[in-house]
């Protein structure tokens, strides 16, 4: 591979896969807000869904 192609390959991986890694880490550290506005608690599910596996 040429030097330019190698650099672009690495850049693509670092930026796009790096962006994925950073966004996953960010959501893992802070999955939800802790200060929601009042209300919004009336949507309990009505089906017998599988157990919650969440971040």
């Amino acid at each position: 591979m040429s030097g330019a192609a190698t650099v672009l390959l690495v850049l693509a991986l670092v930026i796009v896969w790096g962006g994925l890694a950073v966004s996953i880490v960010a959501i893992g550290r802070r999955p939800e807000r802790t200060d929601y506005p009042a209300g919004g608690v009336d949507d309990d599910r009505d089906d017998d869904a599988p157990g919650i596996r969440d971040t």
Partner: peptide, 12 residues
């Protein structure tokens, strides 16, 4: 008039 279907959580 029923609760809406939901994902089990964020991962789903």
């Amino acid at each position: 008039g029923k609760p809406r279907e939901q994902w089990t959580g964020q991962t789903g």
